[in-house]
């Protein structure tokens, strides 16, 4: 555990060279280590997302959480920025890929980097974590209850997203999936479908489903928080990143 850390705001070049905000947390110690890109949930670049970023620093990683809504609402509070981003149709997939790739490059350029970078995302970020792992060079990916990795996106949705089924053959990193058995987005059937596809493709993955847990069980400031699922989930994340992001 690295309780002494440095957490700060930086600006990094994101997709297409756009400057975006990012929250960085790093252990205050000199040793080679992996990096973690934290993809925030749909409600935005909020306190909870930054707490998660600091927790990865405590675990011994350089961690960065880019503000995916920097462009829509620079300087706005996270909830206002999330409202604008939602009203404008959400984050385009190509831009997300570019921003995550830029965040990974930022981490690999740190003098403490061992060259390995993992990505983790929650809620909409869970899908985006898989998307990033299909399109960028990362060493491990974690999907926390991301909807529409599989399954049909209803046609009336104004958000311009598709499922990722056609991209899964390009998944380039081991995937840890953490899901609530009571969740409807993604539903247990959609998780089953993802499991079948990854098995057929011969992709390394590890899934865990928590009985009694719904969506957003890691969100400790929301009624959806599930202590048992979140605690077990954190332990599995720790072991997973330990296995794939070590020196």
């Amino acid at each position: 555990m690295y309780e002494s850390m440095i957490a700060t705001l930086v600006r990094i070049p994101g997709h297409a060279g756009d400057e975006i905000e990012a929250y960085v947390a790093r252990p205050e110690a000199e040793f080679r280590r992996g990096g973690v890109v934290v993809i925030h949930h749909m409600p935005g670049w909020d306190r909870g997302s930054k707490e998660i970023t600091r927790r990865f620093a405590e675990l011994g990683y350089d961690a960065v959480c880019p503000n995916l809504y920097t462009r829509e609402a620079p300087g706005a509070s996270p909830d206002d920025a999330a409202a604008v981003a939602r009203a404008q149709g959400g984050v385009p997939d190509d831009r997300l890929i570019g921003d995550v790739a830029a965040a990974a490059a930022y981490l690999r350029a740190l003098p403490t980097s061992n060259g390995k970078v993992g990505v983790i995302g929650y809620c909409s970020g869970g899908r985006q974590s898989v998307l990033a792992a299909c399109n960028t060079d990362v060493d491990a990916a974690v999907d926390c209850y991301g909807a529409f990795v599989t399954g049909e996106v209803p046609t009336e949705f104004p958000l311009k997203i598709t499922n990722l089924v056609d991209q899964l053959p390009n998944l380039g990193a081991p995937l840890l999936g953490l899901f609530g058995a009571e969740d409807r987005y993604p539903s247990p059937e959609q998780v089953d479908e993802l499991e079948r596809i990854l098995t057929a493709e011969g992709k390394p993955f590890e899934f865990h489903r928590y009985e009694g847990a719904g969506h957003a069980f890691f969100a400790n400031e929301r009624p959806s928080y599930n202590v048992a699922a979140a605690n077990d989930g954190w332990e599995r994340i720790e072991r997973f990143f330990g296995a794939y992001l070590g020196a």
Binding site: R86, A87, S124, P158
Partner: peptide, 9 residues
């Protein structure tokens, strides 16, 4: 649940 469903008026 993250339905993504968003309606504008």
């Amino acid at each position: 649940m993250c339905t993504y469903t968003t309606v504008h008026a």
